[in-house]
């Protein structure tokens, strides 16, 4: 069936069963591959996007549930060559090894900073409670988030 969803400010029509997890609609129908598949159970955060201002694990949400809500993906905040301050901070701090978790973490952090620009260390770490990193890049990522936060505050 045809559904219309609002992705990165555009109305997109997709032919998908309403129960289909948002992640597969983004990746396979809309070719937005930045939300990555990690667990399919909302436990690792690799697929995090922002829905109506909140960080959401897109593998765990049926597409029918996000009709009429603003969805923002990593592709919607900046592009390679014109990165968002959060993405630029990851580059500046070289805050990646394999990078698979990065887009989900950036989206979780964006949702946090949009709501709480002055979030402290504990709030930042807590906001990433549902984001896993396996390479052990945690403290570089935290450094990048603090750097981005400072830049966005200016």
């Amino acid at each position: 069936m045809a559904l219309t969803i609002d992705v990165n400010g555009e109305q997109r029509v997709v032919e998908a069963d309403g129960e289909t997890p948002l992640l597969y609609v983004l990746r396979n129908d809309l070719k937005l591959k930045g939300a990555r598949y990690g667990c399919g159970a909302g436990q690792c955060g690799a697929c995090t996007v922002i829905v109506a201002g909140k960080a959401v694990q897109s593998c765990d949400v049926p597409v029918a549930a996000v009709v009429g809500k603003a969805i923002t993906t990593i592709e919607g905040i900046g592009r390679n060559g014109q990165p968002h301050p959060l993405q630029q901070a990851f580059i500046d701090e070289q805050a990646a090894q394999c990078g698979y978790c990065a887009s989900g973490i950036i989206m979780a952090a964006k949702a946090l900073f949009d709501a709480h620009p002055g979030a402290g260390e504990t709030e930042i770490r807590d906001a990433l409670a549902r984001n896993l990193c396996r390479c052990g890049t945690h403290h570089r990522i935290l450094r990048a988030l603090r750097r981005a936060q400072e830049r966005m505050a200016r």
């Binding site: 591959k33 930045g34 592709e75 390679n80 990851f90 990078g99 698979y100 990065a102 887009s103």
Partner: peptide, 16 residues
């Protein structure tokens, strides 16, 4: 790193 943190299709998982 720039492509990865900008969500560009990078991994075999993303390949189509």
């Amino acid at each position: 790193i720039p492509a990865k943190v900008c969500g560009v299709s990078t991994y075999v998982q993303d390949m189509e």
